[in-house]
Write a protein that binds this DNA or RNA. Structure first.
Length: 301
DNA sequence: CGTTTTTGACCAGCGC
DNA sequence: GCGCTGGTCAAAAACG
């Protein structure tokens, strides 16, 4: 499988003492950006890989001009160790912000049908954002969660539309955007926004949530899947083995921080249904790509 | 029949 | 202030 680009570039980008700032090709500010080169293997296949894929998580430095409100996700993941019960009453982070807004929608939309009650602060960042570059033919990758498409927009300077998805879980306000790279239509950029506050709705084949081997980050042996959106407050165990040592970190990132980040994340397997089309839609072909762009001159103090 | 997708319209932020 | 663009809504259509 062709490497779209240049993992070599990444060090130079994410280096620089944290002054770098990552955007998706469309200019999104991200908390974290992951580059994967799985060499065409599926997620499931990757589990069996003795040799870890090239995986790199990049933690962009907080920037004043960015839309992001959260920062330092790696070091301070927006984890809420509270039980899942909070999902119904007090969704964590800004998710509740969204929920409140959305709950108002019902009545507001009745009030003024002509004047749509758009959210006032829709531009505000609702949580950490993570982008994945995935080389796949399907736009919507099956990541185990259920998503509902709520919009599609043509993107400037791109022949490919951007799709907007929202987690179907009632109390979960996680969103994701899916778009294709103009430079390489085979590459899908998936940007997750927010944090799941609920368990993954699907159960992996052959693995039970509580009984699945969970090596944790300090564990050994296997592959690791970093799907940052798979983070919820319930103390469930990830369905996949997590192993730090399966990751190859760029030396400019901080493995410890990343590990910590991973520790706070819980991954979720592709859905059962996804196994039906493993060859087409799983996060299987994450590739590195040429990141851009002008690094903002925000100096980390 | 319930759920999801499509799609045009609306709104807010931002730059000029 | 105006126009552009991204993000979201919501009705209708499509789907299972």
């Amino acid at each position: 499988m062709a490497n779209l680009a240049s993992l070599d570039q990444i060090p130079s980008v994410c280096g620089g003492g944290g002054g770098g700032f990552f955007d998706t090709p469309q200019g999104y500010g991200l908390d974290m950006l992951a580059f994967h080169d799985y060499g065409g293997a599926s997620l499931f296949d990757m589990l069996q890989q003795p040799t870890p894929p090239q995986t790199l998580m990049v933690k962009p430095a907080p920037q004043a001009s960015t839309m992001l409100e959260t920062s330092e996700v790696v070091n301070t993941p927006p984890t809420n160790s509270s039980s899942l019960s909070s999902s119904s009453n007090e969704p964590v982070n800004d998710v509740d912000q969204e929920n409140n807004t959305r709950s108002d929608d019902a009545q507001e939309k009745n009030a003024n049908k002509q004047l749509k009650p758009k959210k006032k602060n829709q531009k505000k960042q609702k949580g950490p954002r993570f982008a994945f570059m995935t080389k796949t033919e399907v736009d919507h990758l099956d990541d185990g969660f259920r998503w509902r498409k709520y919009g599609q927009k043509a993107v400037k300077n791109s022949p490919f539309p951007r799709s907007y998805y929202r987690c179907t879980s009632a109390s979960c306000g996680v969103k994701k955007r899916v778009e294709r790279l103009t430079e390489d239509p085979a590459v899908v950029v998936t940007t997750y926004e927010g944090i799941h506050i609920h368990p993954c709705p699907v159960t992996p084949r052959g693995m039970l949530p509580e009984t699945a081997t969970y090596g944790g980050l300090g564990g050994g042996g296997g592959s690791s899947y970093i799907l940052p959106q798979f983070h919820y407050q319930q103390p469930l165990r990830p369905f996949f083995h997590n192993q730090t040592n399966s990751l190859s970190f760029n030396n400019t990132t901080t493995p410890s921080s990343y590990s910590h980040y991973l520790q706070e994340r819980q991954s979720c397997p592709p859905s059962m249904s996804s196994s039906l089309h493993r060859d087409q839609g799983l996060l299987q072909d994450m590739v590195s790509f040429q990141i851009r762009k002008e690094e903002p001159k925000v100096e980390p103090s």
